[in-house]
Nucleic acid binder design. Structure first.
Lengths: 231, 231
DNA sequence: GAGATGCTTCGATTATGATCGAAGTATGAA
DNA sequence: TTCATACTTCGATCATAATCGAAGCATCTC
């Protein structure tokens, strides 16, 4: 007698190419309409509607209605985490949808993962913050330290506002291309927003690629030096 | 143009009930034969053979041949991690294959996850080791501290032997029932083996449930006290 | 060598689910 | 109010893949 979670059900939801494309598009963290998602999936609107209904029933989506528009986003970071893990497995076993191309390298370098920075630069951010003692693991929780609070305030991120939300401040997210953690949670999102505000980085339209300007990369590397050790 | 890892392919492999049952059986960390897995999946041997071939091509399995026997195990901890994540999503959205029964509670309490301890007791072990400073995050790595080495040696786990293998010593694994980390890696496995040696705990046949004896639970709680804070 | 056991491959069957045209409902704009 | 737009539902079509009986190959035991 088989008991326990029905992983086949959830996996089969992700296992359809149209639905997988929609979920991947939602990894940007943006909320998209049914029409936009049907375009992403390359199917008609009626087919997309049927797929979205299934994903919603599976608990993978968050749905918000605004007049005649219906906005879909991923339900939570756990969903994003599983999708990242599947990406890691697919990449690790060489199951890619196209030959390695320019965008693939860009995705590995820096990309948006549910609104926070992922890829090479994402893990560099995390490593640097850990190494500088700005983040620490207390029990099971990833926490911002006192020195981290000062650092973040200097960087003009408003912690009070972040703490008002329900999203955890700091959370680890396993990076599919680096196979190590990058920073998720509201602080992770705030960092990406700040990089955008400073014009260090921008999101490429229609993709999850994040491009850093030359100046932005220089500033980023200065502030979050790779391989910096704790004093 | 869709680029990047083909998550639909990997997910569709997991999304078949027979294959999901086989993968779940392999979460115990044991290597099982094709015949055993066909029984687990409730299909004929020829069907199981076809499924196993697919899982192998997808990179989800490790296959070893011994005479006429063929042994299958999960390819690595990443696969186990994704399966745990899917379990979390299914459980979180209430998609269970049977109504909550006695075994479900047992699985949540203590179960084997790719050869290490998971569930309530698994996260308690992790939390306690972290709180006592025996484990620490250095950069991105989960490491055993000096005090942890002493603790482990006292507990009669041979670190020299563990370090000879290729498996990382310490690794975090996200627990589907607790939604927090439990200890994976060779040390995590060694702990479970030690609990078995001491007759504190035993694996229930044909399931992933781990049962602690009353005495074993008492000893475990004494050594890995819940809620113990760092001095 | 003969028979048993473990596993693979082949091919036919059939259940499943993605798909889209058509039609309908809900909302927004003029 | 009318028309346009966003989305849902229905039902027929058809491609796909799981399934198993049959047959074959590999290994083990007596």
């Amino acid at each position: 007698m088989k008991e326990g979670p029905d992983i086949a059900y959830i996996a089969s939801l992700i296992g359809d190419p149209a639905r997988a494309n929609m979920l991947t598009a939602l990894m940007s963290g943006k909320a998209l309409t049914a029409s936009e998602l049907s375009y992403e999936a390359g199917v008609t609107l009626q087919t997309a509607s049927s797929h979205l209904s299934k994903l919603d029933e599976g608990g993978l989506l968050r749905v918000r209605k605004q007049g005649r528009h219906k906005y879909f986003s991923l339900a939570n970071e756990d969903v994003a985490g599983v999708l990242e893990g599947l990406m890691g497995l697919a990449a690790g076993s060489g199951h890619l949808r196209r030959r390695i191309g320019p965008q693939d390298a860009q995705l590995r370098h820096a990309r948006v993962c549910y609104n926070h920075l992922a890829g090479d630069m994402g893990t560099q951010l995390f490593d640097s913050l850990m190494a500088q003692g700005h983040l620490a693991l207390t029990g099971d929780e990833l926490c911002l330290t006192a020195s981290g609070e000062a650092f973040v305030a200097d960087f003009e991120i408003d912690l009070t506002a972040l703490r008002r939300g329900r999203t955890p401040l700091c959370r680890e997210c396993l990076d599919w291309s680096e196979r190590r953690s990058h920073l998720a949670g509201s602080l992770g999102r705030a960092f990406l927003r700040r990089f955008e505000e400073l014009s260090w980085a921008k999101r490429e339209p229609e993709t999850r690629v994040i491009s850093f300007s030359r100046e932005g990369a220089r500033e980023f590397n200065q502030l979050f030096a790779p391989g910096r050790l704790m004093p």
